[in-house]
Structure formats: C-alpha cells, structure tokens
C-alpha cells in the first residue's frame, strides 16, 4: 500500500470506488465543514476538499481536511500550484500527512482572474505535472524536490491528478494523461462529464494505451439543479462541454432538482459500464446534501467493506 487510505484499498480491491466533494466555507466556521461532512459520511470512500476553487478565498483545504478527519471522513486534500511555491507546497504536504491526510489531488488551479482576488500574483513555481512528481519523490524516494533527504516520516500519500477529456487539443489529452501517470498519479478524477459520447471516445483511447491499468480512472459527474446552471457552465467555464439536448431536457422538467438527480443517476449508470472506469467522483458543486440521495438511487450504497 502506498498510503493505506480507504480509497486506495477500495480501488486496489477492484471495487467501483466513490469520492464526493466538499467545498470549505469562505470563513472560519468549522461547523460548516462538519455539517457538510455529514452528507458524505459512510457514503463515499473519500471526499475531495477543494483548495480555493475558482480562485475564491476559502478556508484552507488542509485545515478543512483535518476537521473532516475528526468527523470520521477520509479527505482527498486538493492542492493547487497557483498560490504557493515549492517550499510552501512541500511544507503543506508534510503538514497534511501529519494531520492524517492520505490522499492528495494535484492540480494547476483556476487562474486568479476568475476569483475574488483578480489582482493577486500567481506563483506556478511548479506546474501540476511537477507537483505530482514532487509528491511521488517525497513518498517513494524520501527526497524533497531539491534532492535533500527526508530522513524518516516521509508523507505516505495516494496521489491523485485530474484530466479533462473535453479540453483541446483532443488528441493530446490522452498523451497528457499518460504524462501525469508517468509523473506519479495513482488515481485520476476527470472534469465534470456532460458529453458522455466524447468521454467514451476518450476512454477508448485511454484503454487502447493501457493507461487504465496504470492508474485508476474516476469519472467526474456533477448533478445540477437548474438549466440555468448548465447554461452558465456552457458559456463561462472553459473546458466543459454541455450538449444542448441536456439543457433542453432540464428546461422542460417540471421539477428540475428531481430531473437533475435523475440525469446524474443515468450518467453514473452509463459511466459504470465504460471499460476502464474504476470509480465515480461526484461533484455536487454547492449542493453537497444531494450526495447520499444520488448514491443511494444509483445503487452505490452501501459501500464495500475493506480492511
């Protein structure tokens, strides 16, 4: 075992794994984290704790992850390259592991122009690929990126990365995934999938190259409550493809929330059947309370028991 996390155990046992998501609050309210944590308790192997997502200042992902651990939840702490240099990032990796974090998701991070501090200076001392390699080196070679040894207590982390099958150039996306796996990613969570055909096409290429055997691919699904949310994402979020038919379906729904749940369940059913998909990453952005409902309806409960 690389980390001994529940997520790693479920994936290595060959079970279809589930991760959910928890966005920390934009204040110091630990209760808000505790409340959100309850939605995912016992229904997912682990829960991603986002790191200042969309570049909006929120409680630190590692602090929120520590609170989640106290609630009995296993976190996947997210770490972006936007805000810290390699000194601060390695320091936080050590700190996260010391607090009991066992899964770390490495991302570049949304550019600061999308958030509430567009005047900030970004860092990108390392990029997401290099962050993955850095954490792997800390874990497996017991060395900092500088080459200095970590004499003992190296951070034992299950390393995650993201992949976006919907960005361009399409033919490079699988190549980039291969690079992330080569750099050291143990599991991959994809960008929100709405265009299942394109996802299927991408997965075919992933399987052709045998990448699904080198890292666990988890399909990202985002339930939405309104067609407005879909239209917003289509217009404003680069790298998300949303078919018009889906918007029309939500437009025509009597109860958009119920329809959103139904759509998410249908999508989960379909991705479960795609070769090479090892799990689900459910991202109910700002709608964490729906997590157990969807997982129940999708037949993913109860979760498998692992040692």
């Amino acid at each position: 075992m690389k980390s001994g996390s529940k997520l790693e155990k479920v994936l290595t046992a060959g079970e279809f794994a589930v991760t959910a998501e928890l966005g920390p609050p934009p204040n110091s309210n630990a209760e808000a984290v505790i409340k959100k944590a309850k939605h995912s308790l016992g229904v997912a192997e682990a829960v991603n704790i986002t790191d200042n997502q969309t570049a909006i200042v929120r409680m630190s992902s590692i602090a929120a992850a520590a609170i989640a651990i106290q609630q009995g939840l296993e976190p996947v702490a997210q770490m972006v390259c936007r805000d810290r240099n390699r000194i601060a990032m390695q320091s936080d990796v050590l700190g996260a592991a010391a607090l009991g974090v066992k899964n770390l998701l490495c991302l570049s991070g949304d550019h600061q122009c999308f958030g509430n501090h567009p005047e900030a200076k970004n860092v990108y001392c390392v990029d997401s690929m290099q962050l993955i390699a850095m954490v792997k080196q800390m874990r497996d070679e017991k060395k900092f990126i500088s080459g200095d040894p970590i004499k003992e207590y190296e951070p034992r982390l299950f390393i995650g990365a993201v992949a976006n099958p919907f960005a361009d150039p399409f033919e490079f996306r699988v190549m980039r995934l291969a690079k992330k796996i080569e750099a050291g990613a143990d599991f991959i969570q994809t960008q929100c999938i709405f265009d299942l055909d394109r996802f299927e096409e991408w997965m075919k290429l992933v399987v052709e190259q045998g990448l699904h055997k080198k890292a666990y691919i988890m399909a990202g699904i985002t339930p939405v409550r309104s067609s407005r949310a879909l239209k917003y994402m289509k217009a404003e979020v680069a790298g998300i493809t949303i078919p018009d038919a889906l918007i029309e379906r939500m437009d025509g729904a009597d109860d958009p929330k119920e329809e959103g749940v139904k759509i998410a369940c249908e999508m989960i059913e379909r991705v479960k059947g795609i070769e090479g998909v090892s799990g689900l990453h459910l991202m109910p952005i700002g709608w964490e309370s729906i997590t157990p409902v969807i997982l129940e309806k999708a037949g993913l409960l109860p979760r498998p028991e692992v040692d």
Binding site: G109, Y124, D127, M129, V162, P169
Partner: peptide
C-alpha cells in the same frame, strides 16, 4: 502561458484559445 506551464496545455484550453482571455491564443495548443 498565464500559468507559465512547462507541461501544458492545461484543462482550460479550448478551440486554441486561453481560458483567461478569449483574445489570447493558447500557446500550448
């Protein structure tokens, strides 16, 4: 590149354009 990536393009590259500014080409593409 708005993120100075050495292993780009990031997930925000769409239609050869950078997510940060639609008037700017994605250099990684």
């Amino acid at each position: 590149c708005a993120k100075k990536l050495l292993n780009g393009p990031c997930g925000g590259s769409v239609d050869k354009v950078c997510e940060v500014n639609k008037d700017v080409e994605c250099v990684w593409h």
